Amino acid sequence: MSDLPRCPAAHGGPAASAVLRAEPEDFRVVEIMNVVPEGEGEHLWLEIEKTNWNTEDVALWLAKSAAIHRLSVGYSGLKDRRAITRQWFSLHLPGKDDPSFDWPAGLRLLNARRHRRKLNRGTHRGNHFELRLRAVDGDRDVLEHTLQRIALDGVPNYFGEQRFGRDGANWQRGLAWLAGGEAPRKRTLRGFWLSAVRSGLFNAVVAERVRQGVWNRLLDGDLLQPEGSRGLFPAHDDEHAGARVVAGEVHPTGPLPGAAGMASSLACSRLENEVLAAWPGVVEALAGQGVEGARRATRLPVSGLQWQWRGEDLTLTLGLPTGAFATTVLAELITQRGS
Rank of each mutant, 00 (worst) to 15 (best):
T55H: 09
L91M: 08
R82H: 15
E42P: 12
R81N: 05
S65P: 01
I32L: 14
S72N: 12
L62A: 06
D26P: 12
S90V: 07
E25Q: 14
L46C: 04
Y75Q: 00
L71N: 12
D97C: 03
Q87P: 07
E38Q: 14
K79G: 11
E38Y: 02
D98W: 01
L60T: 06
L20M: 11
G74W: 09
V58K: 10
P94D: 05
V29D: 03
D98Y: 00
L60N: 10
G39L: 02
K50W: 09
I68C: 09
Q87S: 09
I48L: 15
I84M: 10
T55N: 09
W53M: 11
V35R: 15
R21G: 07
R21H: 05
S76E: 06
L44G: 10
E38R: 14
S72D: 15
M33R: 13
R81F: 02
D26I: 06
D26S: 05
H43W: 08
N34T: 13
H43Y: 10
R81E: 03
G39W: 04
E42T: 09
D57N: 11
D26N: 11
L20C: 09
I32C: 13
H43Q: 08
W53V: 03
R70Q: 06
I84S: 07
P94I: 05
M33D: 12
V36W: 07
D57E: 14
L78F: 08
L20I: 11
E56M: 10
R21Y: 02
E23K: 14
R70Y: 07
V73G: 04
R21Q: 12
G95M: 07
H43C: 05
K96I: 01
Q87I: 01
R86C: 11
A67D: 14
E31W: 02
R28C: 14
S72V: 00
V73P: 01
N54M: 10
D80T: 11
R86Q: 14
P94V: 00
S90A: 01
V35M: 03
I84F: 02
T55G: 08
G74I: 06
R21I: 03
S72K: 11
V36L: 12
K50I: 00
D98I: 10
L78P: 06
V19E: 11
A22E: 14
N34D: 15
W88K: 01
H92V: 00
V19T: 12
G74P: 04
W88C: 04
H69W: 01
G39H: 04
E31T: 03
A67C: 12
D80I: 02
E23I: 00
G95I: 10
G74V: 07
E38T: 13
G74K: 08
V58I: 12
V35W: 13
